[in-house]
Nucleic acid binder design. Structure first.
Length: 224
DNA sequence: GCATTAACAGCCG
DNA sequence: CGGCTGTTAATGC
């Protein structure tokens, strides 16, 4: 179980809840650490928790029948995901992998369902969250069929900075170019070339193991 | 053509 | 040293 202070710092959605609701949330949450490369869950698992990334970076993805990795979307520190699987009480649709050492928060299903049944504010949050994810997944269709490498990298990064899914993210993100490649479904070398192009266009700034986003909305629309 | 893997040198913490 | 980056060469769809 976590403290009220801890809840405030890891759960942006809890800010507008009333005291009783926050208390239910707090008591339903534990934290766990995962090493770089570890699976947080596999597709097909019944993981009965709603998950928040409290530090580090994870990736939602899966494997095609041929064994090829399909990367869907990254979730950076501050983001929460998996509400669909908890609500429907169904198996996870995707593998979840820690791209670097990562801490996650797990809210158990009873706590989640209590908030779902009792809190209007929490439900408003959920609707916004679902809506935003739906937009991302629709954009993913375009992503595969129409976009070249730099545009893919641009979107993969921009999605990490989605202000609804991950509000108040610092513009600077600790992420290596290899991890960008994993998120974008590209090799490290291809990610490197794309990143340099995006930097030359003034959309972001590169440092060793870090990047700073300069213009999220241009990244989101970038095509070349 | 475009992206991938392999390989290597340079750099930085 | 070990991890990250920038680049090139060879290969594949």
């Amino acid at each position: 179980m976590i403290t009220a202070d801890r809840l405030r710092s890891i759960a942006f959605w809890a800010h507008d809840l009333n005291e009783k609701e926050r208390e239910y949330a707090r008591r339903g949450i534990i934290e766990k650490a995962f090493a770089k490369g570890a699976y947080i869950c596999h597709r097909g698992d019944y993981l009965e928790s709603w998950i928040g990334v409290t530090s580090g970076l994870i990736k939602l993805g899966s494997f095609s029948r041929s064994g090829k990795a399909v990367s869907l979307v990254g979730v950076p520190s501050g983001g929460w995901f998996g509400e669909g699987s908890v609500l429907k009480n169904e198996a996870r649709q995707y593998d979840v992998i820690a791209l670097r050492d990562t801490r996650i928060a797990l809210m158990n299903r009873p706590a989640f369902l209590w908030l779902f049944e009792n809190s209007v504010v929490f439900n408003r949050f959920l609707v916004r969250q679902f809506n935003e994810r739906l937009g991302q997944f629709i954009a993913l269709v375009e992503y595969d069929r129409m976009l070249n490498a730099p545009a893919r990298v641009a979107r993969s990064i921009a999605w990490l900075f989605n202000p609804t899914l991950c509000p108040d993210r610092p513009r600077q993100l600790e992420i290596s170019q290899e991890e960008i490649g994993l998120l974008s479904g590209l090799s490290r070398q291809a990610a490197n070339a794309s990143l340099k192009l995006l930097e030359s266009k003034g959309l972001l700034r590169l440092e060793r193991g870090k990047l700073t986003v300069i213009d999220v909305s241009r990244l989101l629309r970038f095509e070349e």
